[in-house]
C-alpha cells in the first residue's frame, strides 16, 4: 500500500572527505552540507549534471556536531553547531564586487552552556529559531530583517518542564531534539516539540510548546510520554507533515523504542492538546540516531546504532509495522 515498497536501485551521490561527522540536506535535497571533525564545513551540490563539492571552509575551531539549513525563503544558509558549544550562521552570497562565497552572518559565542540543537520555523513571514542548551534551557530568537541574517532578537527563554513554578536542579543534558510543526500558514500558531537526553527526568519527556499571541509567551500544551515513561531520555523527535489529517502525528524515539503519537489539532477545555500513543516500534538495537518523515507523512525512516535504516508505515487499520529495512553495515565492495 505504499510508495516505498521494494528497494533495488541505488546511485552514488557524493563521496565525503575524511573526518565527516554530520550532514544535512537542504529543502529540495539538491544540496548537502557536511560538518567535519576539524571544524570545517563542505557543501555538495547535486544539480542537473553530476554532484560536486562546491565549497569547503573552516567554520569553527572545534568539530561541527550538527548543521541545520535555514528555510529557503531566507536564502541558501546554514547554522553550524560546534562541539565547543558555539554556533554560527552562514549564507551563500555573490554580487558584482565579490564572487560566490559562504559568508558568516552571525556567531553565537559559547558561554558556560553549550548549544545542543536548534531548528528554524517560519510563521507568517517571520523566521524563528529555537535553540536548546545543555542546561535544559530553551531560547527562541526572531529574525528582524528577512534579508539580513545577523539581526536576531531574543523572544523568550524557558526550561523544558511542564510546571515552571517548581524549582529544579540544574540538569546536565547530553542531547536535545527539536521539531517544529511543519505546517505553514498564516493562521497557524507557532509550535514545536522538544525532548532532552539529560540526568533530570522532568526535562526529558517531549513537550509541545505553543506560542500564545495574547500574552506573548510560550506554553507547554502537551507532553508526549505516558506516566511511567516521563523520565525516559529522548534520542530523537520528528513531527510529520500534515496534508489534511484531523490530528498531528509525532514520532518520539526513547530508549524504549519509537513511539508514534497522535495529537489533537485544537486545545481542549484545559488548554491542552489531546494525545494518544498509537504505537511503540522497536527494531533498532540501541540508540535511535535520526527520525525522518517523508513528504506525505505516511512513512517514517529511522536510523540507529545498529547501522540500519528502517522504514515504518501504518496499514489501513492503523497498525504500525516495519515495512522495509536498509542494511548499511555490510562489507561491500
Amino acid at each position: 500500500m505504499s510508495a516505498h515498497q521494494t528497494s533495488t536501485m541505488e546511485k552514488e551521490v557524493a563521496t565525503l572527505e575524511k573526518g565527516a561527522l554530520c550532514c544535512s540536506w537542504n529543502y529540495c535535497g539538491q544540496r548537502l552540507a557536511v560538518g567535519f571533525v576539524d571544524g570545517s564545513v563542505s557543501i555538495h551540490d547535486n544539480l542537473d549534471s553530476a554532484s560536486s563539492c562546491s565549497s569547503k571552509w573552516k567554520a569553527h575551531a572545534s568539530s561541527i556536531n550538527n548543521i541545520v539549513w535555514l528555510p529557503p525563503e531566507f536564502g541558501d544558509a546554514i547554522a553550524c553547531i560546534s562541539a565547543d558549544g558555539s554556533m554560527s550562521l552562514w549564507e551563500e552570497v555573490e554580487d558584482d564586487t565579490q564572487p560566490l562565497k559562504w559568508k558568516m552572518c552571525k556567531l553565537f559565542e559559547s558561554s558556560n552552556v553549550t548549544v545542543l540543537d536548534l531548528q528554524f520555523g517560519v510563521y507568517s513571514t517571520s523566521l524563528k529559531m529555537v535553540v536548546a542548551y545543555s542546561d535544559g534551557h530553551v531560547k527562541v530568537y526572531e529574525l528582524l530583517d528577512p534579508l539580513e541574517l545577523n539581526k536576531w532578537q531574543l523572544q523568550a527563554e524557558f526550561q523544558n518542564v511542564i510546571d515552571s513554578v517548581l524549582r529544579f536542579g540544574k540538569p546536565s543534558c547530553a542531547k536535545a531534539s527539536i521539531a517544529w510543526n511543519p505546517r505553514r500558514g498564516e493562521s497557524q500558531q507557532s509550535s514545536f516539540v522538544l525532548g532532552f537526553n539529560s540526568d533530570l527526568p522532568q526535562f526529558n519527556s517531549s513537550k509541545i510548546w505553543e506560542f500564545e499571541e495574547d500574552h506573548q509567551r510560550w506554553l507547554p500544551v502537551a507532553e508526549l510520554a505516558l506516566p511511567g515513561d516521563k523520565g525516559d531520555r529522548v534520542h530523537a523527535v520528528a513531527w510529520a507533515p500534515n496534508i489534511g489529517r484531523p490530528y498531528e502525528v509525532i514520532a518520539v524515539a526513547t530508549c524504549k523504542g519509537i513511539a508514534i503519537w497522535h495529537v489533537g489539532l485544537n486545545p481542549e477545555s484545559d488548554g491542552r492538546l489531546s494525545t494518544e500513543k498509537v504505537a511503540l516500534l522497536s527494531g533498532h538495537d540501541g540508540e535511535v540516531w535520526q527520525l525522518e518523515w517523508d513528504v506525505s507523512g505516511l512513512t517514517l525512516a529511522s536510523t540507529g546504532a545498529d547501522g540500519m535504516v528502517r522504514l515504518w508505515q501504518s496499514n489501513v487499520n492503523g497498525v504500525w509495522h516495519e515495512e522495509a529495512a536498509l542494511e548499511c553495515n555490510g562489507m561491500q565492495q
Binding site: 510508495a3 516505498h4 528497494s7 552514488e12 551521490v13 563521496t15 555538495h44 536498509l326
Partner: peptide, 8 residues
Amino acid sequence: KVVEVKLG
C-alpha cells in the same frame, strides 16, 4: 559516501 536509494 552518500547514496540515493530508490524505493519501490
